[in-house]
Design a protein around this nucleic acid. Structure first.
Lengths: 202, 202
DNA sequence: CTAAGAATTAAACATCTGATTAAACAAACT
DNA sequence: AGTTTGTTTAATCAGATGTTTAATTCTTAG
């Protein structure tokens, strides 16, 4: 069955907003991409801004949830959580490589979005994963790296290659397939690298 | 002495393009921010696109040069180069925190820019720094991490916190001053972390 | 079947936007 | 002085852009 008009608009808008941003995407582009009449965008979503907000919030949720999935599973070890995270998140980003840049650009013009709508702080900083981390630091099994630095490192190792992909592709002349293959390798390596950092003695 | 009209336009455009992107910045915004008549933008720079290209290339140069400065100094050791890089680059990004997002957004819509205009590959991948790296790997002093993964890790640890700053600030409720203080700490830590990763045995 | 409601369309609208023009003004030169 | 060259200004233009309207077509409940 064909997707509904409403869904066709959303799909087209997702693609275009993701690639070209809010101002770079024109209502007529959305209509053309969705194969619908221009007026239907306003009929179903009232305004371009409203459509953008809806899509933005959905993406932000999947971006944050994509990180946090598995972080509150009390049955897994710290190492298992890192392995699970790297796997799941690199899969997500391989399917939606423009997601981080889209989110960060939107947050630049409206930093309050993430504070208001989502319990990011609670979801991540008070997660079982971070509890395990701080316990291990307290027990001196890990180097005393402040939690926020640790989180920056973990996310940076995972997300940054996708944000700077054009840059890295220019540096190494690799195809997108080869790039994706590298990201698969990182699934295995990131847990090792993170583990090594946690052994650092001050 | 007052900056020239041409320079006033450039300064205003730099600020606005950086914060709001190309389409988000209107020619009338630039004129107002620069305190000049609307027509002068076209008089000095012919078109908004041309002005953007000029600014973009300047920023891209400082972004890439900012990385590569010190990478070809044959008198310094590998460790010294990493320490120098972390220091210099975090200083640069503290002064221009929106630079990476600006560059990456522009590269998304025009990935060829970086290939055409700048010898990134040569500047980084064939640098003295990377030679030292591959030699150390060959001599089994470092773990056999492919150079591109190593570069992704090094840049990711440095640049990603600036790109995702709104995200991290929401997570930890810190002020911009506190964030900058954390970045200063990373100057010291990143060399240690990178070093630890290079000890990983497969 | 048919009337009411929902969905779709082409056209129009008001405003915005990048760029140009012609005139006014200023500075430098002879 | 007057002339030329470069700079600035207000007004204007043509096209783009987000949204609305009124008419038309499609669906569906009675």
């Amino acid at each position: 069955m064909d997707p509904s008009t409403e869904e066709k608009i959303k799909e087209a808008a997702r693609r275009l907003f993701m690639q070209q941003g809010f101002e770079g995407t024109k209502t007529r582009d959305i209509a053309k991409e969705a194969g619908i009449n221009l007026a239907l965008m306003n009929y179903y979503f009232r305004s371009k801004q409203n459509l953008f907000d809806i899509i933005m919030l959905e993406h932000m949720e999947s971006f944050v949830k994509g990180i946090a999935v598995g972080f509150n599973d009390t049955s897994t070890s710290f190492d298992e959580k890192i392995r699970f995270y790297a796997n799941a998140y690199i899969d997500l980003l391989t399917l939606q490589p423009d997601l981080p840049l889209f989110i960060m650009t939107a947050l630049r013009s409206n930093p309050a979005l993430i504070t208001e709508r989502l319990g990011v702080k609670k979801m991540l900083m008070t997660s079982h994963f971070m509890q395990q981390y701080t316990e291990a630091v307290a027990a001196k099994r890990f180097a005393p790296i402040p939690p926020m630095h640790f989180v920056m490192n973990l996310f940076g190792l995972t997300v940054f290659p996708f944000i700077a992909r054009p840059f890295f592709q220019a540096m190494s002349n690799i195809t997108t397939d080869q790039f994706n293959a590298m990201m698969q390798e990182r699934k295995q390596q990131i847990p090792h690298w993170v583990h090594a950092m946690l052994e650092v003695r001050p």
